[in-house]
Every structure is written in C-alpha cells, then in structure tokens.
Amino acid sequence: MRRFWFVARGVAWRSIHNTLVSPAILVPSIAFPLFFLAAFAGGLSKIAQVPDFNYPPGYTAFQFVFVFLQSAAFGGVFTGFAVARDFDSGFARRLLLTAPQRSGIVAGYCGGALARWFVTGSVVTIAALLAGMHVPADGSELVGMLALGILANTVSALWACGVAMFLRTEQAGALIQMPVFVVIFLAPIYVPLSLLTGWIHSVASVNPATFVLEAARGLLANSPVDVLLAFALLGGGIAVMAFWARRGLASAERAG
C-alpha cells in the first residue's frame, strides 16, 4: 500500500506542477468555466423573471452551481487529455516501467485532476462572488456542495483515464469529452427541470447529472433536496469508473 501512495503522490505532483507552470494547460481549464459563467449568468439573467423560476438565491447562484460542477467534470476531462498525451510522448511507458504499483498511476492522475479543479473552482467561486452571487447556505451545506464537486471530478477523471489508457493516443480527446459534455448539457442547466418541456424534460428527468445539479443547487439555497441520492449516484459512478479505469490500465499494460 505504501508503494501505491508513493506512485500516486509522484504522478499527482507532476500533474499539478505541469498545470501550474504551463499556461497552455492552466488557462483553458479556467477560461471555459469563466466564459460559461459570464455568458450564462450574465446573458441569460432575465430567465430569473420567468414565471415558475423559483430559486431564491437568484440566477447568478443558479448558474454558478452548474459552472462549479461543470468545471469539476471538465477538470477530469482535461486530465484525460494529459494521460493521452503521455502515451503519445512515451512518458506513460516510463511511469509503467517505474511504478511498482501501477494502479497508483491512475490515483495520481485523479489527484492531479482534483488539484487542478481546486484552482479552477476557486477562481470561478471568486468570480461569482464578485458578480454579486447570494449564498444562503450554511457551512455544512457548502462542504456538501464541495464534496459533490470532488466526487464529480473523480468520476470524470476516472472515465477520462480509462478512455485515454484504452486508446493511448491524443486522438482519444473527442471520445473523452463528448459523453461528459452530453451528460452535463442534457441536465437542466439554464432553467429548472420544471421549466423544461418535451424530450429534453424526459431525458433530463432520468439523467443522473440532473440529480447532482439539483442537490447542489438545493445545498447552496439552504433547502437541500435529494442530497443522499446525489451522493449515492456519484459514489456508484466512482465504483463503475474505477473499474473502467483499471480495465484501461490493464489494456495499456498488455499493449506495452
């Protein structure tokens, strides 16, 4: 077990180091959520005046929760890109060759994804607060919301690691990104679920991301809803995606 942690720590350190010293890696992961926050919370703020829009903290807070979770999920996606890049450059082979406990490599990449998201999430939160976001939540609710973000980031990072390790090429990028993008954008991101109609309502009603988003919005609004269900869904997602990432690692090991 010690070997596992040493490997995880080393891989996570490199991931964090490269993110912090390389603007080409850091800037996009911050720019995307900031753009979403500015575009949606600013440009669509009139949605708050739509009848049946019932979110007391306001539309900025409503959008902030989405951007907060979206940045968590995309933090994982960006890590998948890095894994794929490591396979293309041959550096992943060095890690496979050096790491006594190879599952620590996946854990390290996930640790790196989390650290990267802490930077992005902090920037997004500061931006939302500067934009006048109202936060009725108490401390434990904020911790709950943060925990949902951490779990979402981990699910996404495990998914991305799995795909990157199965395909072992930067061309895996589209496949890593697309499902995460689809799942997120088929949730009620612009308006509450009750205001959606037609097929999008049907899809959003069964989309696990909807439950996570609603739970996080409930926590921020100091009126929790389906929080346990959201945690259970993300916990289940981690179990499934950990299995998926392990299979991806095994595939990379077989391929050499």
Binding site: F6, G10, W13, R14, S22, L95, T98, P100
Partner: peptide, 14 residues
C-alpha cells in the same frame, strides 16, 4: 516541461 532535477525527484518519489 520538467527539469533534469525534477525528473530525478519524480523518479525517486515513484
């Protein structure tokens, strides 16, 4: 992106 020393430190950590 890593320096020579950072490579050695990373390898030693692993």
């Amino acid at each position: 992106i890593l320096t020579g020393r950072e490579h050695l430190m990373l390898q030693a950590t692993l």
